[in-house]
Computed example of a mutant assay.
Amino acid sequence: MISIKGLSKSYGKKKVVEDVNVTIKRGKITSFIGPNGAGKSTLLSMVSRLMDSDSGEVLVDNDNVNKMKSNDLAKRVSILKQSNFMNVRLTVKELVSFGRFPYSKGRLTQEDEKVVDRAIDYMNLRELENRFMDELSGGQKQRAFIAMVIAQDTDYILLDEPLNNLDMKHSVQIMKMLRKLVDELGKTVVVVLHDINFASIYSDRIVAMKDGKVVKEGPTESIIQTEPLREIYGMDIPIQEMNDCRICVYFK
């Protein structure tokens, strides 16, 4: 369980995240939704300690992340940011191997190699493993970065808009893979999503943010309703039931 208590972050006089209190349950997909600038990405950065908070604390299974050694935290929480800039030329397999750094310190064991291979297979990247990252499409790169996070083999996986640059087919593949990570491997996935229909179909829980604050949270079915969505997005979004899924018709 990840407990976020009173977390806040400001830039100058602007409060980007304000007194957020959220509990992320183990073995679930929790999606963070909300308008641009709501503070979702900033919150994930503070949870993973990529960014310092101004106040509050984050507990991972009752351990304060600010008191953990970096290597210990990296074995328990992994994160994939929106933009991943590289100034070195790597193959897909070399990139995925970086996920093992908290364990191998750059010297891969046979067990590390097995974990890397499993991650590559999991993301259907076998045919691309020896290709250089700068030769890949945006969607292929994104799958490689997600494979790197999977290879890190943490209990908690944080993904900041992982569907960026992906077409419909690969977006569905990614969400199905995340669902398998939770259902088959017992991982806990926290994901920032802009498409509320992906959040509706694949999430167990949803946390909605607006103007740096949590405005709604709970089981998916309690959030994907017209009234809560109006409060979150400021627009009427009809809901239709299709194949036991709630679909948000926000484009009319």
Rank of each mutant, 00 (worst) to 15 (best):
I2C: 13
S3H: 08
I4E: 11
I4V: 15
G6P: 11
S8I: 08
Y11C: 14
K13N: 12
R26Q: 12
K28D: 15
I29N: 11
F32Y: 10
G34D: 12
P35E: 09
P35F: 00
A38G: 12
K40I: 10
K40L: 09
S41C: 11
S41T: 14
T42R: 03
L43I: 13
L43N: 10
V47D: 15
S48E: 15
M51D: 15
S55R: 14
V58P: 13
N62M: 00
N62V: 03
N64K: 13
N64F: 02
V65F: 01
V65W: 01
S70Y: 03
L73A: 03
L73H: 01
L73G: 04
K75E: 07
K75N: 06
K75D: 05
R76D: 03
V77H: 02
S78D: 12
K81T: 15
K81A: 14
Q82K: 01
S83K: 06
N84S: 13
N84P: 15
M86C: 12
N87G: 07
N87E: 15
R89W: 00
V92G: 11
S97Q: 08
G99T: 09
G99Q: 09
G99P: 08
R100K: 05
R100F: 03
R100N: 13
P102M: 01
P102Y: 03
P102Q: 03
G106A: 10
R107H: 00
T109I: 07
Q110R: 09
D112V: 02
K114P: 02
V115N: 07
D117T: 08
Y122I: 07
M123Q: 09
M123H: 01
L125S: 11
R126K: 12
R126F: 01
G138M: 07
K141G: 12
Q142I: 04
R143I: 02
A144Y: 02
F145D: 11
I146T: 04
A147D: 08
A147I: 06
A147C: 06
I150K: 05
Q152H: 06
Q152V: 06
D153G: 11
I157E: 14
E161A: 10
N164P: 13
N164S: 15
N165A: 13
L166Q: 13
D167P: 09
M168T: 13
K169A: 15
V172S: 05
M177T: 10
L181V: 07
L185Q: 14
G186H: 04
V189E: 14
V191D: 11
V192K: 04
L193D: 15
D195C: 08
Y202S: 14
I206T: 05
A208W: 01
K210L: 02
K210T: 04
K210M: 05
K216Q: 08
K216E: 13
G218K: 02
G218L: 04
I224T: 05
Q225T: 08
T226D: 10
E227T: 10
M235P: 15
P238C: 10
I239W: 04
Q240H: 03
N243W: 01
D244I: 01
R246T: 03
R246K: 14
I247S: 00
